[in-house]
Design a protein around this nucleic acid. Structure first.
Length: 784
RNA sequence: GGGCGGUUAGCUCAGCGGUAGAGCGCCUGCUUUACACGCAGGUGGCCGGCGGUUCAAAUCCGUCACCGCCCACCA
């Protein structure tokens, strides 16, 4: 590279060029017929509606580091690329867009609406794939998959039918989490418990025989309309005589049995519990034990049903609550009202307060599926990093509950079930004959995501891709989808391929906003990775994110991005210097000629070894720190200074630079590719350059010597600084300084014993040094 | 109610049994022909509190205090 090259690398200009070059050279393309060892990673498929956020940027940088490293090492790398149809999110986005034009989903009808979603997907979906390219990610873009592709849909239906036939999937009228905002059931994992302060109301239920009353407490008086019993603890003396009697439900006049159930805590409230089987999971269980009637009073539309009686039907629960309280007060049955703080379920998807209701839904029993997936982690076939997440996974798996898999949406995999009167048909194809109607519900998005590592490779066909690249090696993700996604992939992989879909799960940091809040668009705390890329370059962003990443949550730090940008500039300028001094690429390893050469060879050797170790252990911030220090401290601050003074040789400098570029490339692909291309003798892309090798063996002797040199030089500089001497003051030193010391700093040997003004003493091993005038050599201030 | 994690320099974080580290900030010098997105030299921490183990503890154990996250069906 000519010395007249600009003193900075300009990412905005050069990065786009390299993205094209990599694509043209097929860098991300995987060949299933290759003889090379396979290395594969399945990207956590971003939502089609998604845009790159910091979490994606970090996660995909990590995956790209791993993929690039393995590719350079000679593996056939497939980084599986694609997006997720994200049922709820996508349907919501399109619905909103249509509503802006005054078009409503229900008016369009299902078929037309789904067509519009596809249209939207073709036009706006998947922009994140382009953004991943900007980040420098070497995915196999030519094999981009979508969880609603025909082939993928086939896999989904196949799995549904197979699990149905095994008896794992079944339909039941059961209590589910109903999301009134969404108009759909959601799974337990999509429910978030939030603390709220409600009013705990005590209501008197008169005994039917007129002999008194039983007082119950509730935070949801409106649900009393669906009460079908009052329960007390069997050991509760106060109520022993009442068990078997009945009370009359106020407002509706229904007669309710008083039952005894262990669930009831005698110490809570009055010790008597109103039982609303249709709207409380505990009450539902009590009702099943006692064969009680269940009466729905809140419907799927989130309003009171006919079951609530003519005065209340049609109201929202909140309106109904006010009305019920008013009516109860009017007849004098409210005994107490007090504030009460407890947790209440809210939908993670819509934010609405979840209504537990009884509904006819499809479920998947997870017990049997979980067994091999538990063993996989217990027996170490799947390993989590950090290891604690393996425990979290196991704790959840060991108490796994049935999964509510049906969703009352239109966008998704429609459940392959047909009904005709009492008949039911479950199959890949519709049944023969007239009068069949297909199940309207679709599957939970995570049901299809669970198949990602193999459905993307063509399963259930036995494709060459599947043969070569399943199972994958690593799954990298954040902890929030360990249950939703990771666990389910393991279960499905075990069930359908007989093998876990990956052996390593790396759980990376969550990047928070600089103030410690969650980074989110709605909070206004998001930082757009693309803006960072535009401003500082993808390499700087990648490096900064790797530096930030950790085993815990971290705040986004603009300083780390700066550090990355500075490293980019440093590498760029170091390359300029080396090229100027005659450094070349593509040489066979030259024999180190000087002490400095032996030293940098040793440093690079150490760096290469440590980098491999850190990469294998997913120590990304340590890896970033290592390359930073190797470039700045070793190569630039000391070695290149020695090169300028003639204490090192250009061949070794060039060779070491080539290796350093190769070492840094997986982290910062753009600047390293650019620098490589500017080294005389460089051929081919750095992206497929062989892995870095040391220009020589680790050399402890050379390292010890240079350590000593560094100490002397630092001491000299500190001495000058303390004395406020001009920086380049020449000092005479006795004994004569080592050539490397003299080269790095303007010192001269004291040739006249009467004249020396400075003493530097290197004791064996280079550990003890005095720097200062002879007269001060014993001064503790100076002694080091 | 269970479980996990955090508390280290002004800020953001590493380190996790052997004399306290980085980046940024701050102070002093430097237009040294790769780089001022730079170079050199500095300032700055009883490593949350209290106990304990050890020759030796940010580092291991116990406990307390805040902060955060996950799981959980007490009206």
């Amino acid at each position: 590279m000519p010395g007249s090259a600009p003193s900075r690398f300009v990412p905005s200009k050069d990065e786009l060029r390299w993205i094209e070059r990599w694509a043209d050279a097929g860098v991300g393309h995987a060949d299933p017929r290759s003889d090379r060892p396979a290395f594969s990673i399945a990207i956590p498929p971003p939502n089609v509606t998604g845009a790159l956020h910091m979490g994606h940027a970090l996660n995909n940088t990590i995956q790209d580091v791993l993929c690039r490293t393995r590719r350079m090492a000679g593996d056939e790398v497939m980084w599986i690329c694609g997006t997720d149809h994200a049922g709820i999110a996508t349907q919501a986005v399109v619905e909103k867009a249509l509503a802006a034009e005054g078009i409503y989903r229900k008016e369009l009808g299902r078929e037309e609406f789904v067509r519009r979603v596809w249209e939207w997907k073709e036009e706006y979906g998947g922009q994140i794939i382009g953004q991943l390219k900007r980040l420098g990610c070497t995915l196999d873009y030519g094999r981009e998959r979508f969880t609603m592709d025909d082939a993928y849909a086939k896999a989904v239906l196949h799995v549904f039918v197979a699990l149905y036939e095994k008896g794992y999937i079944y339909r039941d009228r059961y209590m589910v989490n109903w999301d009134p905002g969404l108009g759909s059931a959601i799974s337990d994992l999509e429910v978030e418990e939030l603390e709220v302060t409600d009013t705990l109301v005590s209501i008197a239920y008169p005994l039917t025989d007129g002999s008194g009353e039983v007082v119950v407490a509730t935070v949801r008086p409106e649900t009393m309309l669906g009460d079908t019993a009052v329960a007390v603890n069997p050991g509760d003396e106060r109520y022993r005589d009442l068990v078997g009697k009945t009370v009359t439900l106020p407002l509706l006049g229904r007669e309710l049995p008083i039952v005894a159930d262990e669930y009831v805590q005698p110490g809570f409230g009055t010790g008597a519990l109103k039982v609303t089987p249709a709207h409380d999971p505990n009450d539902f269980a009590i009702a099943r034990r006692h064969g009680l009637e269940t009466i729905n009073v809140i419907g799927e539309d989130g309003r009171m049903t006919e079951g609530a009686g003519p005065f209340y039907a049609g109201l929202t629960p909140a309106e109904c609550q006010a009305r019920v309280l008013e009516d109860l007060r009017a007849i004098g049955l409210v005994r107490k009202e007090e504030p009460y703080t407890h947790t209440v379920p809210f939908s993670h998807r819509s934010g609405a307060r979840v209504e537990p209701i009884i509904s006819l839904q499809w479920f998947c029993d997870m017990g049997r599926l979980a067994e091999p997936a538990i063993a996989a982690v217990e027996e170490g076939r799947v390993r989590f990093t950090p290891a604690k997440w393996g425990e979290v996974y196991l704790n959840w798996m060991r108490e796994i509950r049935p999964w509510a898999i049906s969703r009352q949406l239109w966008w998704g995999h429609q459940i392959p079930v047909w009904y005709r009167d009492e008949e039911i048909h479950v199959g890949l194809a519709p049944p023969e004959g007239e009068g069949w109607e297909r199940e309207e519900d679709v599957l939970d998005t995570w049901f299809s995501s669970a198949l990602w590592p193999f459905a993307t490779l063509g399963w259930p066909e036995r494709t060459p891709e599947l043969e070569k690249f399943y199972p994958t090696q690593v799954l990298s993700t954040a902890r929030d989808i360990i249950f939703l996604w990771v666990a389910r992939m393991v279960m499905m992989g075990d069930e359908f391929l007989g093998e876990e879909p990956f052996s390593e799960v790396y759980i990376h940091s969550v990047i928070q906003a600089p103030d410690g809040r969650r980074m989110s668009k709605s909070l206004g705390t998001g930082i757009d990775p693309l803006e960072v890329i535009d401003e500082h370059g993808a390499d700087a962003l990648r490096f900064g994110l790797l530096m930030m990443s950790s085993t815990q949550d971290v705040r986004f730090s603009a300083d780390r991005i700066d550090q990355g940008r500075q490293l980019v500039t440093k590498i760029w300028n170091a390359t300029r210097l080396v090229v100027d001094r005659g450094g070349r690429a593509g040489l066979p390893a030259p024999a180190p000629a000087t002490l400095a050469d032996r030293w940098i060879a040793s440093r690079v050797a150490r760096g290469v070894e440590e980098a491999a170790d850190l990469t294998a252990r997913f120590e990304m911030s340590q890896l970033a720190k290592l390359v930073y220090e190797l470039v700045f401290d070793d190569y630039c601050d000391w070695y290149l200074e020695l090169l300028k003074s003639g204490e090192a040789t250009p061949d070794v400098a060039g060779f070491a630079l080539e290796q350093i570029l190769a070492l840094v490339h997986p982290l910062m692909p753009f600047v390293t590719e650019e620098c490589w291309s500017r080294m005389p003798g460089a051929e081919g892309l750095m992206a497929v350059h062989p892995p870095p090798v040391a220009p020589g063996p680790a050399d402890p002797a050379a390292e010890a010597e240079i350590d000593a040199v560094q100490e002397v030089v630092s001491a000299l500089r500190a001495y000058r600084s303390r004395r406020n001497l001009p920086p380049r003051t020449r000092l005479a030193m006795d004994p004569a300084p080592a050539p490397a010391v003299a080269a790095l700093d303007p010192v001269e040997a004291a040739d006249d014993a009467a004249r020396p003004t400075l003493v530097a003493t290197l004791l064996p091993g280079g550990r003890s040094i005095h720097v200062g005038p002879l007269a001060e050599a014993v001064d503790p201030e100076v002694e080091r």
